[in-house]
């Protein structure tokens, strides 16, 4: 969906859905995950439809994702950190 325009300067390693990714330091979780791959961050809590980051500035709350075991974190505001574990959110299971 998006590509990086230049080589990364300095990277950290994050774990997304069990896979290691080396991503540039200083960016948000949302921008790190938008490079390559598909964009789906979660499924809607109402219909279960796939959702992805939207506004990228902390207004729309579409980019909610599970970080280090805590759900519903704003990926577009949170910077990547070494060894961060990130998981997609699925519609509430009973």
């Amino acid at each position: 969906m998006f590509k990086k325009q230049y080589e990364s300067h300095e990277t950290v390693s994050i774990i997304f859905e069990g896979k290691n990714l080396d991503v540039e330091i200083g960016q948000t979780v949302a921008s790190a995950l938008l490079v390559g791959g598909d964009m789906v961050f979660r499924s809607s809590v109402v219909s279960g439809q796939p959702r992805a980051p939207y506004c990228m500035m902390g207004v729309c709350f579409e980019c909610l994702i599970e970080i280090d075991g805590i759900p519903n974190q704003l990926a577009c505001m949170i910077p990547v950190r070494e060894a961060m574990k990130i998981k997609r959110q699925q519609k509430n299971k009973e």
């Binding site: 990086k4 960016q27 948000t28 921008s31 790190a32």
Partner: peptide, 8 residues
């Protein structure tokens, strides 16, 4: 913020 550009 991250030097990303749309791909596609």
């Amino acid at each position: 913020s991250s030097g990303l550009i749309p791909d596609g």
